[in-house]
Amino acid sequence: MNGLEMRGLRVSFDGFVAVDGVDLTVAPGDIRFLIGPNGAGKTTLVDAVTGLVKATGSVLFGGRQLLGRPVHRIARLGVGRTFQTSSVFEGLSVLQNLDIAAGAGRGAWTMVRRRRTVPEVVSRALETIGLTDRRDALAGTLAHGHKQWLEIGMLLVQNVDLLLLDEPVAGMSHEERDATGALLASISAERTVVVIEHDMDFMRSFARTVTVLHAGRVLSEGTVAQVQADPRVQEVYLGAAA
């Protein structure tokens, strides 16, 4: 298991600084929540770590520098992410989605042949996310919550060490949120999890540590209780609400 270490991370778009010198350390096996008002730079931070946007500074994962590598190379180092909007392959079945996620290292000979059996990791992930009986359904026909679980399942079969989840429970029912939280807890036994979330109840129930971002900087960091007691955090959230 690996941890994540950012130093002086900075992202700017045409002069607008979205992430402004963030230092952030996530310990192996942690469930770290990133919270903050809209525009705080949470998603941009994840974009920078996964190679989607250019950034300066340093992001070390398992001792290796992530900045400057292309997206698919970072993914192969064991960094996986989801998006705010569900991005499963809607025209493919649940099984096909998972099989593709499991297949980054496959050789040419495996690729040009048909998939005859269900790989072990895939059937285990199907169990974990509870979609075994929907495995032949087209991903596009799944309910919203099931799509989000499929996304998480794809990260599991991809065998990432670090999961970066962008609002995984948005639009889910209460039961689905609890199920997702329990899923994250079990995943963190073997992997490091970073969650961007606006849902404060969800955060209170399942976060181990929390980082509050505001205007591209780290405003506060600690356990849920520490962060909630921080007057600066209260100010930012009250200010944003007013």
């Binding site: 989607l52 698919h72 593709i100 980054a104």
Partner: peptide, 10 residues
Amino acid sequence: ERVRFLGHNP
């Protein structure tokens, strides 16, 4: 883009 994040090179 999604394929890229799964470690494949499109």
